[in-house]
Design a protein around this nucleic acid. Sequence first.
DNA 1: AGTCAAAGTTCCCTAAGGGAACCCCAGTTG
DNA 2: CAACTGGGGTTCCCTTAGGGAACTTTGACT
Lengths: 150, 150
Amino acid sequence: MQRTNFGEMVCSIARTLDVIGEPWSPLILRDVWAGLTRFEQIQADLGISRKVLTERLNHLVEHGVLERRSYDRRPRHEYVLTEKGTELVDLLMVMARWGDTWLAGKAGPPVLYRHHACGEISKGDLRCAHCGEPMHAADVDLLPGPGAAG
Amino acid sequence: MQRTNFGEMVCSIARTLDVIGEPWSPLILRDVWAGLTRFEQIQADLGISRKVLTERLNHLVEHGVLERRSYDRRPRHEYVLTEKGTELVDLLMVMARWGDTWLAGKAGPPVLYRHHACGEISKGDLRCAHCGEPMHAADVDLLPGPGAAG
DNA sequence: AGTCAAAGTTCCCTAAGGGAACCCCAGTTG
DNA sequence: CAACTGGGGTTCCCTTAGGGAACTTTGACT
């Protein structure tokens, strides 16, 4: 499909899409996060084509989001989140929250999140890392940063 | 390409992908958020095919993320974020933060975010909406919710 | 009447996803 | 030791979606 290469763009969103923006990739990460770490498990859970799953897993490993590990002397592997991949789970939680809010309908959210610190069923909320106040679309100005185009 | 329909899945992440998971969609939202609201502006900024841009904009309007507005008696439109779309900006900020952290390299982030409340250059941080403590991958348990599959 | 610009639409070409069949490897079974 | 099994892919073909360029429409300006 001669897809445009987002990785070359001067934009952290585009670069992130270059890593996990292909179809299925976020769902694969979700599965690994949820404990489905083996090829067959993920394939069965998602119903994804084996060919595409192979491609996605390789891509995610190449980009350091997943690590491939042997768990047997037979050629058996499992995929685990690296630190880089673990930080992507924030993204999954924000996606899940938006879907819960806007797309879940009367049935309600398919999954609930219990926060260890307080033990409550809760949601993630974006806060300013500096002052702790809410930080949403209307709360920020965008300024050119050091990595902005020349 | 006979793409699998994520919208039917019992998963808020998959449903969210059904709305904004296609290639280019998050970048289109980024542009609209950043003030590029017209077809020609977005097309020129992204270098996206006009055909695909038309498809994506229609899709986002159909799903209530963008609204199409006339700004002239001539057939001129601009696209603006609805409330539903504005809440998706959280997702963009989290993507941007991850890209800033892991992909920006020595040049540093292309864009900085100044938080209105404190005036500082900052980042969004995921906190528990209930207790305010950090809420990341290792801080939560996943439980089946009311909308879980039967 | 002729020009202009925004916003699409149409057409062709190529590449990517779906699906099913096939393969390889190292244990396990008989 | 031959056959079987199950995880983890690879290969092949078919269809469809993205890229790119050309063309169209609409109302306003000159």
